[in-house]
Structures are given as C-alpha cells and as structure tokens.
Amino acid sequence: MHSAPTWDPQQYLRHSGHRTRPFLDLLARVPDLPAAGRPARIADLGCGAGNVTALLADRWPDALITGFDNSPEMLQRAAKEYAGPTPGGGRLDFRPGDLADWTPEEPYDLIVSNAALQWVPGHADSFPGWLDALAPGGVLAFQVPGNFVAPSHRLLRDLCTRPEWRDRLGDYLRGPASVLDPAEYLTRLLGLGCEVDVWETTYCHLLTGEDPVLDWVKGTGLRPVLTALGDDPEAVDAFLAQYRDLLRAAYPPGPHGTVFPFRRLFAVARKAG
C-alpha cells in the first residue's frame, strides 16, 4: 500500500489560472439548482486549496458550501484563505474526506468535483450513492483530466519503469484507465436515470518560464513520485533532471512560450425531479 501523495498548495497554485478555467467551463453548463426558497447545499469533492470552491459562491451567493479533501496541507490552506461567511449570505467550510469512501451525510443540491476523481480507482462506482443523496433535480458535475496518453504523462510512466527507478516507482503512477471514456460516463449516468451532458475539450495552454511543463506537473502528476522519493534528495534531483530533459524535447519552447495541450473530460448529470 503506497502512502498518499503529499501535496504542496503553493506549487499547485502556480498555474491556478489555467487550472481554474475548466472548472468555470463546467459550472457554465450546470443548470439551476432545485433549492427554491432556501440556500443551496453544495459539496466540492477534492477541493484542494479551496480557490475553485470559492468560485461556487459567485454562482450561488447564499449557498452553504463544504469542500472535502484528504490532504491536510490543502485543507489548511483552504480554511485559512476561504472559510467563513460569504458576501452573499452563504458560508464556506472545509472538512477532511477521502473520495475513495466518501458518503454524503446529508442531502445536497449539487455535488461537484474538479480534477480529483482520477485519483480514485473505481470512482464511477460511487455515482449511485452520490446521486441518491441529491435532492430531486439536483446535479452531479465533475471534470477530470484525459491527458494520460500525452507525452507529459507517458514519458513520466516510462521513466518510472526504467531499471534504475523500477523497484521504487514502477507501480506508482496512474494510467489511462484512471478515467473512463466520455461515452462510458454518459452511459453509466444515463443508466442511473439522469439527464446527462458529457463533453471533452483540449486546452492549448501557453506556458512561460524555464521548464514550465515540469513546473506544472510538479503540482499534480509528479506528486506520488516526489512523495515516494522524498527522503532521498539526491534521487529526487536525479529523477527530475531526467524527466526535465524528456519534457524539453517533447515540449520545445516557441517564440511566444511553450504550448502545452491538455485534454479534459466533463460531465453534468441532473437527477430526475
């Protein structure tokens, strides 16, 4: 059993603008919630540093919003920056919660997740229980990366299986099976009686600075590797140097910066009213 990755909120937030855009695109497709005459109740699964959770209060100013995450580092940052009353009369709070076994303890109008479910094997098996916890007309909405066959991810997996790293890192990383195909998300959610909207988008992020793709992945996909090697600084440096060279070849800088295509999958499922 591998230990959970240690997260670095500051590193993750270095690319917060690019990482926030898919969440805003997801929210734009969420229909009105069924909470008539009362504040909406919203759960954000895998809330991370809380910066996107706070955006929910812009759309639903009086909502009661709870972010759940299993990273103490992320929850500490979220609580410090965002917990408390919102200007619209709602409230933000943050609680520990592991999405692998998270069970709603109260009814919700919206359960939302941004770039978190890919860390949970078999996450689609949780959909029936989550939908049961929604009010009639409530919504389950999520976004997950679909970039596992891109050079950034494929090269990382290949590097972990090289002879010098295989024993320590060979089975640490997630592969394409970490998320379902869009059509399978659609089929599963339709089978649960929902009105469903599923789509995918490839964002062409323009990154700047030295080795920007490596800097991006340090905040997300590299976390299991950095956690596994964390007690061996020399190994961390050696691994990062090898990965950096591979990324430089795969994502050469252009005249305006480094283009980093990133595919993401989206689903919005509305429970029958």
Rank of each mutant, 00 (worst) to 15 (best):
S3P: 00
P5L: 06
Q10F: 02
Q10T: 14
Y12W: 10
R14W: 01
H18D: 00
P22E: 04
A28G: 12
R29M: 08
D32P: 00
G37F: 11
G37Y: 13
G37D: 07
I42S: 04
L45Q: 10
L45R: 11
G50W: 03
L56S: 03
L56E: 03
D58M: 05
D62M: 10
A63S: 10
N70Y: 11
P72Q: 08
P72D: 08
M74C: 02
L75T: 03
R77I: 02
A83Q: 15
G84K: 10
P87Q: 07
G90Y: 08
P96L: 11
E105G: 14
E106D: 04
E106G: 03
Y108I: 06
L110V: 02
S113I: 05
N114G: 03
A115P: 02
A115N: 08
V120I: 15
G122L: 11
A124D: 07
A133Q: 07
P136F: 11
F142E: 05
Q143V: 13
P145T: 07
G146W: 06
N147V: 00
F148P: 01
A150S: 15
S152D: 15
S152R: 13
S152P: 02
D158A: 14
P163Q: 07
G175Q: 09
A177Q: 11
L180E: 14
A183D: 04
T187K: 14
R188E: 01
G193N: 12
E195Y: 03
V196P: 00
T202A: 11
C204M: 01
G209T: 11
L214T: 06
K218W: 01
G219Q: 13
R223T: 14
R223C: 12
P224L: 11
L229N: 08
D231N: 09
D231I: 00
D231H: 07
D237I: 05
L240E: 15
Q242Y: 00
Y243A: 15
A249P: 00
A249S: 12
A249N: 08
P252S: 13
T258V: 07
T258N: 10
V259N: 05
P261C: 09
R263H: 13
R263A: 13
F266A: 06
F266K: 06
A269V: 01
R270N: 01
R270I: 00
K271L: 09
A272K: 12
A272N: 15
G273Y: 01
G273S: 11
